[in-house]
């Protein structure tokens, strides 16, 4: 059942190490990857050799977006900007729309497009440095410590999800705004320490809102602000998985409502469903 605390504002977490602190296992992998590059060998091959044995995926975090409830207001888009401080003109979750039909029988078709957090992520497959991980909770995550900005994922993703951070800022200089902390992983909180510059970035389902046990202590920004309460979010792998935001049974929604996924024919296994 959804916890009331997700809607409450007062969350405290104990002090934790910085994400920039080297993690031994990751550093080892990084060194290995670098060697491979020197030898101009694609990492897909060596990736297998450095990867650990397959682990059981513990969760399948995903979204069920109710297009009947979505009013195309784009509050989710701006909430994400606010949360993740994406570069000017770039968005983790645009809302795409297109007009169809003839006057007066005209309709819009539209959908919000967060990362689909695929079962078989193309981005992961093509990254020469293996910077992209499919986590145990299903989140597809680009590790900024490993990413070298090849843009392979940006080009390959059939959903055009990853964006490349050129380091552009909204306002020039060291104005107040540029000193405002970014909630996203606390990574951008100090001026001059913008770890995403020169790297690929994308929607992480606001992974930074998980506690150390992997439980969300606050909702992803888009889910929380959605004016139509259209975005259901939770564990799609659990037959009894509930929406963390409003408590609906996620499988129940998929059983009772018509739904679709984007580009299912690609075989990517997207974990964002759209109720139509």
């Amino acid at each position: 059942m959804v916890s009331d605390k997700l809607h409450g504002p007062d969350k405290k977490e104990s002090e934790l190490p910085s994400p920039l602190d080297p993690i031994p296992s990751r550093r080892k992998f990084f060194q290995s990857a670098a060697t491979v590059v020197a030898g101009v060998v694609t990492l897909a091959a060596t990736g297998t050799s450095v990867s650990k044995p397959q682990s059981v995926q513990k969760k399948k975090l995903g979204m069920v977006i109710d297009l009947e409830r979505c009013v195309v207001c784009r509050a989710c888009v701006v909430a994400c900007k606010q949360e993740n401080k994406t570069p000017p003109g770039m968005s983790y979750n645009p809302v795409l729309e297109e007009e169809t039909g003839e006057y007066p029988h005209v309709k819009l078709q539209w959908f919000p497009r967060p990362c689909q957090h695929c079962d078989k992520p193309v981005c992961l497959e093509v990254c020469p440095y293996k910077a992209i991980k499919k986590r145990e909770d299903g989140i597809v995550f680009i590790d900024p410590n490993v990413c070298r900005g090849t843009k392979a994922c940006v080009k390959a993703c059939p959903y055009k999800v990853p964006i490349f951070d050129e380091g552009e800022k909204y306002h020039e200089g060291t104005g107040v705004w540029n000193e405002v902390a970014s909630p996203e992983m606390g990574l951008m909180e100090k001026p001059g320490k913008r770890v995403w510059v020169g790297k690929a970035r994308k929607c992480t389902f606001c992974v930074h809102k998980q506690d150390k046990n992997g439980d969300y202590i606050d909702l992803p920004a888009c889910v929380k602000t959605c004016m139509g309460k259209a975005i259901h979010f939770g564990d799609l792998g659990d037959p009894n998985g509930k929406c963390l935001a409003h408590g609906e049974g996620l499988q129940e929604l998929l059983k009772t409502r018509k739904h679709m996924r984007l580009k299912e024919e690609e075989g990517t296994g997207p974990n964002v469903y759209y109720l139509t």
Binding site: K11, K52, K134, A181
Partner: peptide
């Protein structure tokens, strides 16, 4: 698209690494 090889599940950022994502001075404080 050619059929994609099943990517391995890399634990990658495990829970320990995950925990490291959260900084002491972020907005939750």
């Amino acid at each position: 698209a050619a059929a994609l090889a099943l990517p391995p599940f890399v634990p990658g950022l495990g829970q320990k690494a995950l925990a490291a994502i959260r900084t002491g001075k972020n907005y939750e404080q």
